[in-house]
Design a protein around this nucleic acid. Structure first.
Length: 198
DNA sequence: TGAATGATGCGCT
DNA sequence: GCGCATCATTCAT
């Protein structure tokens, strides 16, 4: 059957972050890169929400790095970390409310050859199984920070692929806010970042 | 199979 | 200067 594809609009991002985080699992991310089109099915995300979240970059107010999080929803927030990796976020909530969703893992779909060129030594199945690995394989850097997700370069698509078995756990790699179950992932996916399944 | 660690640059105190 | 929303490699059990 023909797959119905619907690009997600500003109204999708202009809502409570936790609701979006839950719904975004199973959606597809599309990147029309200079080297060709890539896409992947999102299987793992984390929510970072505003001034009350001790793990959110915006907790100490607006800075040059996190400014885009304070702006309108539906834009990319990409930051550089640990001297060699980038992480991709989607800005959520209304303008002035700093919040975002971190994309942690996805399943490769279109453009797998491009991903392999960007990161030759990972098996395809786990090519995007971590936030740093995702950005490396997609070739995303701070050059793509602040891109409008309602444009044609980077956007999300709803392909109506059916129900997803979603699990909630604490977020990974942080020292504060670990009591919050703000990590969401697809229990049936082989591509989640930590491969503890049992 | 899991814990420890080095690589590496930048933003913020 | 220090710590960081990471990853791959090395070492221990």
């Amino acid at each position: 059957m023909a797959t119905r594809r619907r690009k997600l609009l500003r109204t999708f991002y202009n809502r409570p972050t936790l609701k979006i985080a839950e719904e975004i699992i199973g959606k597809h991310i599309v990147y029309n890169s200079p080297y060709g089109r890539m896409s992947a099915r999102i299987v793992e995300v984390e929510a970072y929400i505003g001034q009350n979240d001790p793990a959110c970059h915006a907790v100490r107010g607006k800075t040059g790095r996190n400014a885009v999080m304070f702006g309108k929803p539906g834009f990319t927030y990409i930051y550089f970390i640990y001297g060699m990796y980038h992480c991709l976020n989607f800005v959520t909530e209304k303008e002035g409310h700093a919040a975002a969703i971190l994309l942690r893992a996805a399943e490769p779909d279109e453009g797998i050859e491009i991903m392999k060129q960007n990161a030759p030594h990972s098996p395809t199945r786990r090519q995007l199984s971590g936030p740093g690995k995702f950005c490396r394989a997609f070739g995303l850097t701070r050059a793509q920070n602040g891109v409008d997700l309602t444009g044609n370069e980077i956007y999300l698509e709803d392909r109506c692929t059916g129900d997803v078995n979603i699990i909630r756990t604490p977020r990974i790699g942080i020292n504060h806010g670990t009591e919050l179950d703000w990590r969401f992932y697809d229990a049936d996916s082989e591509a989640v970042s930590t491969n503890k399944r049992k």
